[in-house]
Structures are given as structure tokens and as C-alpha cells.
Amino acid sequence: VDRLVILHEEAEDGNAMPDLSRPVQAVSNAVANLIKVGRDTINSSDDPILRQDMPGSLHRVEGASRLLEDACAMLKADPYSQPARYVRDLFVPHHQTSFSLPIFGNRKKLIDGARGILQGTSALLLCFDESEVRKIIRECKKVLDYLAVAEVIETMEDLVQFVKDLSPCLTKVSREVDSRQKELTHQVHRDILIRCLDQVKTLAPILICSMKIFIQIIAQGGKGAEEAAENRNYLAGRMTDEITEIIRVLQLTTYDEDEWE
């Protein structure tokens, strides 16, 4: 978009805008594909927030694409159409610029169209990404729910069922968090996720072991049951803390961190 703006500025010298029909058509085709895929995603998603937020981004991209097509058609008909006056303020924040005059005509439409397409696509990706994060968090919360019942397990039979329930859930969380951290560009967030996941993996078998010890102790008369319960609760608490931290970091964006700036 910045480069288009510069082209627009150069057009002040009276140069004609070239015929952009073919590349604009390629952009329109790509937009049409995104609209189709986006609508399919909305229709097949069970995430109410995505279903609410994504249509707005799609409309924005769709409208911007039309703007681009219109501008292209009009510039083709009149290549000298309405040159720019002052456009630097388009990409300089308002508090840093000493002037702010409008630009006119089809060249502006072209720039606004390209900008709208990129911003709309970016918003759509963000909306999709946030939905993916919510999916992982749902799995994390299932693990938290299981951990909360660790304290009430008092028989081997219940423990076997507990392990059967918890294991697939933990495996899923582990797989999803691991693939998420690989996608992140923010090194600090990646490191925290890796560290928490390692802790969860280490703690899980120790927690099961502590639960087994507690069950065996109460089956044999209960001497030392209090300490065994304390140990089990401590381990369940540690795991809960690690999962809670994973949830927190999953929701962070790069803009939350000063160092990104």
C-alpha cells in the first residue's frame, strides 16, 4: 500500500496510471476465493464469536475489492484522472504530521481498495486465529476440570477411570500447544509455553503415582493418609498452575509486550 501511495504521489508530475486490469483481476479472484472459504468456515464453525466477527472482515474485503475494480476500470478510461495533492499523511500517524489534506479520485480508490483488502484479510486471519486459540483453551479447561476431581478419587477403579479420561485430553493439549508454540513469532511466549508443557508432562505421571499411593494407604488402614493427600494436592495444584499459565500465554498478543515495539 505504501508503494501504491508513492506511485500516487509521483503521479503529481502528470504521469498516467498504467492499465492494471490484469493484476486487479488476479486480486479479485483471490478475494472471491477468500470470501468462499471464509463463508464455509463461518457456516461450519461452532464458535459463536467467530460466527459474529468474521462476516464483518469478509464484507470489508469484498467492498475493498469492488473499490479496486471500479478504480481500475475508471483509470483505464481516464489514466490522468484526479492526481494526488498531499498523500504522505496517509501513512504517517496524524500526531506526527503537520498537514492533512485530502486526496481525490480514482487513484485514491485504488489505494483505499488495496489497503482495505489487506487490512480486511489481516482482520479475518486474526479472527480465525483467535478462534483457534479458543479451541486449545477449551481443551486446557477440560484438563483443569479433571485435575479438580483428583482430590475425590479414593479407589483404584476410580483412578483407572481418571487416567482413562485425563490421558487423551492431556495428549491433545500437549499436541496442540506444541504446534501452537511452533507458529508463534514471539520468542518469550514460545519459551513459556514450552516450559509449562514440559512441566505438565513431568508432573502428570508423578500425580498419578501420588494418587495411587494415597489409595493404597487408605486401603491399608490410613496411616500417613494426610501427608499422601497433601502431596497429591500439591502436585494437582502445580499442574493446575502450569495449565492456567498456558491459557494466559495463549491469549497474549505480541502487542502485549513492550519488547515487541
Partner: peptide
Amino acid sequence: EMILEAAKSIAAATSALVKAASSAQRELI
């Protein structure tokens, strides 16, 4: 996956549009 691919196509097409505009403009200048 499909959304990411669609978004990449848009980025590529928009970039090609700007390149087309730039090179044509340079020739004129």
C-alpha cells in the same frame, strides 16, 4: 489451512498488483 492459503494468494496478488503499477510507472517516468 484453506483460509491461510486464500490469504496468501491475496498477499501475492496484491504484491503483484503493486509491482505491476511500479514497473509501468517507472517506464513512464
